[in-house]
Each structure stands twice: as structure tokens, then as C-alpha cells.
């Protein structure tokens, strides 16, 4: 087996790879941010005690968690135009990723909400906060802290999931790699580099998560 490695393909096209990586990072962060908002609202519905709201959130979680992400992506990108909603590849990618991450985070955040003692909630009510304000100011912050490791695990999966969006020609890192590969057939060099770049992106996301933890969850150190 004679294969002479030639990484010049990487050097020559690094700008292309970087712009793909940038889109991957951008889509990841936007999808995670929107998905987390969905997750918080979903967990509110799930724990509201209102059968209708709970039912809506539960149906959403069930459908998303039990169907392939690729199909969700195709449905949003190729299916929704039939209803008159046409999105760019990038928009469809972010929306579908957010919806997907939202379902997983709904269940994670719900577990966090359920870990908050009734006493905390009653203390908030006793001061005079309405239920929704108690949820916002008193329940959600420690709930997120309690499930933060699980949430970060899901965040990383969400970042890795983004590679699927190359299937609708969103020009992410995987798309850039596929494009170079089809032109140069330097598969080893290209996918090796792409893998390293995904690793770097995940590390960036983890670093951000750590900064957020330092900034907002300092108190968690002192809990017994």
C-alpha cells in the first residue's frame, strides 16, 4: 500500500474549511440558545400541572426524540415549503437543530425543576411572587445548575449533530470537507483535519460553558 500523504490540500483550502467551521459554530450556538429557551418553556409546561400544556410538551418531546434528526431536517427544509414556509438551508438547519435540542433539553430541565424543593417555591410565593415569577427567579436558576452536566452533554451532541445539515447543502464544516474531497480525493487528510476541527469547536463550546458556569453557578460550590 503506497499512499503519500499530502496536506497541502488543507493549507491551500484552509479559508474554505474555516468558513465552514465558523458556520458550524454559529449554527451550534444559535440552535443551543434557541433550543434552551424552548427547553425552559417546555419544562414549564411539563411541570405546570395543566394537562393541556403538559400534553403539548409531552407530544413534542415524544415526536422529536423518537424520530431521526435527518428526517426532521428534511421535513423542515423540503416539507414546510408546501405550507408556504420556505427557509434557506442555514435557517432550516438552525430551526431544526433548535427544535431537536429543545426536546432533549425540555426533559433535562424538567428534571432540574423537579429537584427544587417545595419549600423554595413556597418561600417565593410567600414573598408575593406569582407562580410564573417564582419559576423565573427562584426555580429555573438552581434547576439549571442542578442539571448543568447533563445539559452540557446534550449541548455537545447538538454540536456534533450539526454535521448532518450538510445534507441540505448548508455550507458547514462537513459540507466544506465533502466539497474538497470530491475535488481532490484526499479523503484521509481532509477528514482527519475536519475531525480535529470539530474537536476544536467542541472545546470552544465547552470553554464557553465553563465560563457560564463560573459566572452564574458560583453558588453551586457551597451547596451541601
Amino acid at each position: 500500500m503506497e499512499y503519500s500523504f499530502d496536506f497541502s490540500v488543507i493549507a491551500d483550502n484552509f479559508g474554505l474549511l474555516l468558513s465552514g467551521a465558523w458556520l458550524t459554530l454559529k449554527m451550534s450556538l444559535l440552535a443551543i440558545a434557541f433550543g434552551l429557551i424552548i427547553g425552559v418553556i417546555g419544562s414549564l409546561f411539563r411541570t405546570s400541572g395543566n394537562p393541556l400544556l403538559n400534553g403539548i410538551a409531552l407530544a413534542y418531546v415524544e415526536v422529536i426524540r423518537n424520530t431521526p434528526y435527518l428526517i426532521q431536517l428534511f421535513f423542515i427544509f423540503f416539507g414546510l415549503p408546501s405550507l408556504g414556509l420556505t427557509l434557506s438551508a442555514e435557517q432550516a438547519a438552525i430551526l431544526s437543530l433548535a427544535i431537536n435540542f429543545g426536546a432533549y433539553s425540555t426533559e433535562i430541565v424538567r428534571a432540574g425543576v423537579e429537584s427544587i424543593s417545595k419549600g423554595q417555591i413556597e418561600a417565593g410565593l410567600a414573598i408575593g411572587f406569582k407562580k410564573l415569577a417564582v419559576f423565573r427567579h427562584i426555580v429555573i436558576p438552581p434547576a439549571l445548575a442542578n442539571v448543568y452536566p447533563a445539559l452540557i452533554g446534550q449541548v455537545i451532541l447538538a454540536v456534533l449533530f450539526t454535521s448532518v445539515v450538510s445534507q441540505i447543502a448548508a455550507e458547514d464544516l462537513t459540507y466544506a470537507g465533502n466539497y474538497l474531497n470530491s475535488r481532490t480525493f484526499r479523503s484521509f487528510e481532509i477528514y482527519f483535519t475536519i475531525a480535529l476541527m470539530y474537536l476544536a469547536i467542541v472545546w470552544i463550546v465547552k470553554a464557553l460553558a465553563y465560563l457560564i458556569e463560573l459566572r452564574f453557578f458560583e453558588f453551586a460550590k457551597y451547596r451541601k
Binding site: 424543593s117 419549600g119 423554595q120 413556597e122 418561600a123 417565593g124 410567600a126 427562584i138 436558576p141 438552581p142 445548575a145 453557578f217 453558588f219 457551597y222 451547596r223
Partner: peptide, 12 residues
């Protein structure tokens, strides 16, 4: 105002 047996301060 109400004060509880378990204090119930907001930990965060």
C-alpha cells in the same frame, strides 16, 4: 411575612 422551619433561602 413568613418564616419557615427549613429557612428556604434561595441558594443561587
Amino acid at each position: 411575612g413568613m418564616v419557615f422551619q427549613q429557612f428556604n433561602l434561595f441558594p443561587h
